[in-house]
Design a protein around this nucleic acid. Structure first.
Lengths: 205, 205
DNA sequence: GTTAGCATGTAAGGAGTTACATGATTTT
DNA sequence: AAAATCATGTAACTCCTTACATGCTAAC
């Protein structure tokens, strides 16, 4: 979760912890937040695993100044080669771990880096997950509606509408993906170009 | 969380664990689910705390049959007096613990048992929580919009629309509460009738 | 010079999940 | 008699939060 998000953000540019958390908020928006209490330990774990390295962020600022080695400067984290591999590995995963409630948004946030075929599979996975849930709720709701009070009913109905809305959103996204997603090929070989990063699109003006 | 939900359901009628989980699904619908792995330990904790007691659920079924004490029957849980108190205590709580994402739905599900004044405070608390979040996201979105890719943007916008929707829902509910909430009194004394259960409504045919 | 915000971390703990283990009862 | 579903439970673990502790840097 946090791990994927960190890998994704550091894949764009090196950052220090505090900045990372701001970006996390900016990227994930309304649907997820992380505290420093989980961020820093995660960064440490990831460093120990060899996915990121710690750089002295003040080196550039101070430039020619003398030592000062004792001071506590910003710690800038950047991806290692293994880290990039790990990121690609996680991006390629299309399974429950990519379409459950808590995880889907994080995966979605990095769809720009994700293989088009995987994107569609995740969107579809998420959609069927929601459809299943909706059916389950609709069924039990039909059986128990009369016994439910005003508020429980309100809650169910608001919930169902939310799910409906997300299903429609996903359906639109899936259609867009199918239409404009793979522009090179028209049919046949859906050569999933896994790691290939699009030439320039990230910093496009 | 689970504790409140269990208290709420057992307040309606005694249930055994398995049944409790079904009811949990039926009551909470789309937005929350619990596994047995958390339900049973919670029931045990609650029994140790003295809020619920375990009854032998098969006693009635077997009636006059001989002992058979060794068999593993259903364990029916029911609220104790302390449990009812605890439930009222939790219901009366109008604070972050009642309007955060994971908790709000559970509190809402038992609004039928909740004091009208507390209901409004929780609804308003939830609403301002969402409005704050929305403002935060809108602000950082305005600052970073140009740097975000297609997908991140989609995510932000879908998120904002969801929040908007919930805010509108809450506003409607608050208005309804203010209007039809306290039907007996027209003004003045808003005698919060805390515990009073409605005469017959639960098992109405 | 003091408040506010930037910056990094740790310790303890909460609230759940998954996977496993077991057995009874009902349906096919 | 096999399969499904009802029913109860435990052990290990995941993942994150809260509260705390510390110090630097910019703004008022």
């Amino acid at each position: 979760m946090l791990e994927l998000a960190v890998l994704g953000l550091l894949h764009e540019s090196p950052l220090h912890g505090y900045e990372l958390r701001q970006r996390l908020k900016a990227t994930l928006g309304t649907f997820r937040a992380f505290s420093y209490g989980s961020l820093y330990p995660t960064l440490r774990r990831m460093r120990d695993a060899g996915w990121i390295t710690e750089d002295d962020g003040d080196a550039e600022v101070v430039a020619g100044a003398p030592a000062l080695t004792g001071r506590r400067g910003k710690v800038v984290y950047k991806l290692t080669a293994e880290g990039k591999e790990r990121f690609q590995e996680l991006l390629a995963e299309a399974g429950p771990s990519s379409w459950e409630d808590e995880t889907f948004g994080v995966h979605f946030a990095f769809f720009g880096q994700t293989d088009p075929a995987v994107r569609v599979r995740i969107l579809e996975g998420r959609r069927s997950r929601l459809e299943e849930r909706r059916e389950g709720v609709r069924t039990t709701l039909a059986r128990t509606r009369s016994r439910l009070d005003r508020y429980t009913l309100q809650l169910q109905e608001h919930g169902l509408e939310s799910v409906d809305r997300e299903v429609r959103w996903l359906t639109e996204l899936i259609e867009t993906e199918r239409a404009g997603g793979p522009p090179p090929q028209t049919s046949e070989t859906s050569t999933t170009s896994q790691i290939t990063p699009p030439p320039t699109e990230r910093g496009a003006p």
